[in-house]
Design a binder for these strands. Structure first.
Length: 848
RNA sequence: GCGGGCGUGAUGGAAUGGUAGACAUACCAGACUUAAAAUCUGUUGGGCCUUGUGCCCGUGUGGGUUCGACUCCCACCGCCCGCACCA
């Protein structure tokens, strides 16, 4: 008997696939296509179990769809720009390009042994000039279409590293690397006009039926549409009126004061003559952006001394306060406060002793507001005390609509729709990113680079010993003639946010070597991505930016109208988790230990080398910092790729986290070995022409259920059905012929998950060609039904007995059999039957 | 605070209105073995007794709808995720 040796078998089949070129995708308009894509990886240099799970899911889909006859595109590339390469350059003195390309090579070496059905001929890396030159070309096209502009924006500035920091790089107000206090600094930055698409991006979410509703909801909230009234308050001193925006104009009679942001032009203008206000504003702007900071930040206010008149009653004057909770970026940067119906306003008014005026009550309770604002859902009907638009009882929503109409008719306000979504700032003051192809000319101003001069390539000769952007201090790179007038000019030194790179790579995959960003015919054929698979962490930014970019590419002629919504179906997979292990270090602080270092025994865990006790911690996402990682390479060395693939597909539903356990991996391996032993045993049996109905039925049930599992993204169920099928086949007393046939079907059904073992079985049992290229088996509906069924019998909803009946026995006869059943007679105890429910083929319920 | 999700044996999970616990892991017992590993077979939600084709209880808690509820509805408890001073 031969033992299955994955180390020999797996490379053999990978070579066979490569030689037969089976994963190469060619457009073929006579065939229906299927584009499956997993979010491409950042080339950190090491693959991890999360990658294995993500890419195995995509591979299962790709291999299955291919077997069903579709022309599958399943490409792979690298999200290769980004900060980590610059950090490596600073830490180790390696050039970002060297570091990145080495990592790509290393990761490719680690990925290949997993046997994914990838078309490597379409590989792309976003840091390659052959990729980013097209990004630059599209940038220029988008500039021409008015989709890109420049404006001042506040950034986190690290004065020591002389660089802009992302929000997550600011820790407790300090730069994560330098430790310097971070400053807010205004810089002129480039922006995509994504806000022009707010309504479009929101409305189109409705059509994304095959996206998780969770993701759609997150995007909806992120876009944050609201409808309200914009109007202005006249000032008693005759100064510029204060324009406010409110979503609750119906509460205008409950106004207590007008609040403006510390960044509001009026507040800023007053700083000059009012040092107290200037000091207040500095304090108010400080507030951190962390969760706790916001939750615990006290509501602070400063009375400007200004007064405004109520728009409906000129005799009603109210004060203007600067308040730290009002954002300049949203609405008009100014509000009117209605403390009776807004908790935040109420807290503020109680603190500064401002009036609180009720405007409506619940229908059954007219108690004035004390310290809890009355904020019913907008759909609730409430009673109004004195509504200026003449309402007595109405829902909040109706009142808002009526008020907007009233104000518009009276001419003192207008209905306005606001969105939370802000324009996408794409400037990064960094080296390792796509250069923005723009030149600053002293006479012509901002001029786009000529397309024939693309790519604007990153200079190779840069150093990272000094802080700041290497492009800024490069001796010659910036110096170029103006593309328009030819006189000496300077290049833009900002590079693009790496989210730009990942916003169109899926389109580039459709024609990865073309001279233009895309080729219409190819995009027309391959787009959209039929199944996109990736992490939930990209639910908002990456997916929203990509949806915007597809529209922008369409407007600039780079994508067809049919591809503005680029991902037909989205699946977000769970993480791979593992127990954490720690020994006690100095001062009781945990010293994290890798699973390799730990032995799990009956009396708890101990350290392999010293026997020191080990504390078993919570099961969390595999991460380097907690050392709870299992290296896919080690698993492949020990068990082979198929075991790793099988394990990550089994047990947990794919959208949930899966816990990696040594025993689980071992179990997966044992099962594959068992399937092989069974194959071996069958191969020694003769190939007779016998027929075994029971085994045939089991086979068709397996085909049916495994297929349903894959179709429904329930790979764990497919795996369970394959276990069942294996058990059935192992126990079957059928002769060699039927068993051989069943095992060949097993190989086909296993192929998407464990392709190497499947090929080996297929070959051993005389399958034709490669199982990877074999047509997916189809279940015969006639084989899925049994002639007799077991009907459970319930008495008053409790299962008491069961009967075997032919599957299509008429109801009346079933009823007779049921009433004659011993157990039924016993439980009826002579009581009359009130009702007899027969669900054909399923169940019978006798009600007394 | 707002929005969303989840809660089933020792464990991962299955069952989306019709026999709760498929399948797997772990554990235990048996076979094989000098022994161990591997493999194979079997048991395993809890309780009760009269040990049966037995009875009672059981899907976070309490209620409701239904002939029938893990599944649908209401309230509560717990955990997880996302967003957040958005006017």
């Amino acid at each position: 008997m031969s033992r299955y040796n994955a180390r020999v078998v797996e490379p053999k089949w990978q070579q066979a696939w490569e030689q037969a070129n089976v994963f190469k995708a060619e457009p073929d308009t006579t065939r229906e296509k299927y584009y499956v894509l997993e979010m491409f990886p950042y080339p950190s240099g090491r693959i991890h179990m999360g990658h294995v799970r993500n890419y195995t899911m995509g591979d299962v889909v790709a291999r299955y769809k291919s077997a069903t006859g579709l022309n599958v595109l399943h490409p792979m590339g690298w999200d290769a720009f980004g900060l980590a390469a610059e950090n490596a350059a600073m830490d180790k003195g390696i050039h970002p390009a060297t570091w990145t390309f080495q990592n790509i090579a290393d990761m490719k070496d680690q990925l290949k042994p997993l046997g994914f059905s990838l078309d490597w001929s379409r590989e792309i890396a976003t840091c390659h000039p052959e990729y980013y030159r097209h990004q630059q070309a599209m940038f220029i096209d988008m500039m021409d279409k008015g989709l890109i502009y420049r404006k001042n924006a506040v950034v986190n500035w690290d004065p020591v590293d002389m660089t802009v920091l992302a929000n997550e790089q600011v820790e407790a107000g300090r730069g994560w690397r330098s430790g310097a206090l971070v400053e807010r600094r205004e810089l002129t930055q480039w922006f995509f006009k994504i806000s022009d698409f707010s309504e479009e991006l929101l409305g189109a979410l409705d059509g994304l039926d095959n996206w998780p509703s969770k993701v759609r909801l997150m995007q909806e909230n992120w876009i944050g549409k609201s409808r309200g009234l914009q109007f202005s308050f006249e000032r008693t001193d005759g100064g510029d009126p204060i324009e406010v925006y409110t979503t609750r104009p119906d509460t205008l009679m409950g106004a207590s004061f007008v609040g403006i942001s510390p960044d509001h032009p009026i507040a800023k203008a007053m700083e000059a003559e009012n040092p107290d206000l200037a000091a207040f504003n500095i304090e108010a702007r400080k507030g951190g952006t962390t969760e706790e900071a916001i939750e615990t930040a006290p509501k602070l206010g400063f009375d400007t001394g200004l007064k405004v008149r109520h728009p409906l009653n000129p005799d009603w004057e109210m004060p203007v306060w600067v308040a730290n909770f009002i954002l300049m970026e949203y609405g008009t940067g100014a509000i009117f406060a209605c403390p009776a119906h807004d908790q935040r306003d109420l807290d503020f008014c109680r603190k500064y002793d401002l009036p609180v005026i009720d405007t409506f009550f619940a229908l059954d309770d007219a108690t004035p507001v004390a310290n809890t604002a009355f904020v019913p859902p907008k759909t609730d009907t409430v009673q109004w005390i004195d509504h200026f638009a003449g309402l007595d009882q109405a829902t909040g929503q109706d009142a808002v609509d009526a008020t907007i109409e009233f104000a518009e008719k009276a001419g003192w306000g207008k209905g306005v729709t606001n969105y939370r979504l802000r324009d996408w700032g794409l400037s990064r003051q960094r080296y390792w990113g796509c250069p923005i192809p723009v030149v600053h000319c002293p006479s012509c101003g901002i001029v786009a680079e000529k397309k024939e001069n693309l790519p604007v390539e990153l200079p190779q000769d840069v150093t990272f010993e000094m802080p700041g952007n290497p492009l800024d201090r490069h001796p010659t790179w910036r110096d170029v003639p103006c593309p328009s007038c030819g006189q000496a000019a300077k290049r833009e030194t900002d590079t693009m946010d790496t989210f730009v790179d990942s916003s169109w790579y899926f389109a580039r995959f459709t024609s990865p070597r073309a001279d233009t960003p895309t080729v219409m015919a190819d995009a027309q054929y391959w787009m959209n991505v039929d199944q996109y698979i990736g992490g939930i962490e990209h639910a908002i930014l990456h997916l929203l930016y990509s949806r915007f970019f597809a529209r922008a590419m369409n407007l600039t002629g780079h994508l067809p109208d049919t591809a503005v919504e680029p991902f037909n179906a989205l699946f977000t997979q769970g993480m791979v988790t593992h127990e954490t292990y720690a020994t006690e270090g100095k001062g009781g602080r945990p010293v994290w230990r890798t699973p390799d270092e730990v032995v799990l025994g009956d009396k708890g865990a101990t350290l392999r080398e010293t026997g020191e006790p080990v504390e078993i911690g919570p099961i969390i996402k595999m991460s380097k910092s907690k050392k709870n990682v299992v290296d896919p390479e080690d698993i492949i060395d020990q068990y082979g790729a198929d075991t790793a693939r099988w394990f990550v597909m089994s047990d947990s539903p794919p959208e949930r986290d899966v816990e990696w356990t040594a025993s689980g991996a071992e179990g997966a391996w044992k099962h594959l070995q068992r399937v092989w032993r069974l194959t071996d045993e069958i191969s020694e049996q003769g190939d007779d022409g016998a027929v075994d109905v029971a085994l045939e039925k089991a086979t068709h049930r397996a085909i049916d259920e495994v297929t349903k599992g894959i179709d429904g993204f329930a790979f764990n169920k497919s795996v369970a059905k394959l276990y069942e099928f294996t058990n059935a086949l192992a126990k079957s007393s059928a002769s060699g012929g039927p068993r051989r046939k069943a095992m060949r079907t097993m190989a086909q059904l296993m192929q998407p998950m464990t392709p190497h073992l499947a090929e080996e079985i297929w070959q051993t049992l005389g399958g034709d060609g490669l199982v990877t290229q074999a047509a997916w088996p189809i279940a015969d509906p006639a084989m899925l039904v049994d002639d007799t069924v077991t009907l459970p019998i319930q008495v008053n909803g409790k299962r008491r007995s069961e009967i075997m009946v032919p599957k299509d026995m008429p109801k009346e006869e079933v009823e007779k059999l049921v009433l004659a059943d011993d157990a039924v007679i016993k439980f009826l105890a002579g009581a009359p039957v009130k009702k007899l429910i027969v669900v054909p083929g399923r169940i019978v319920n006798v009600v007394v």
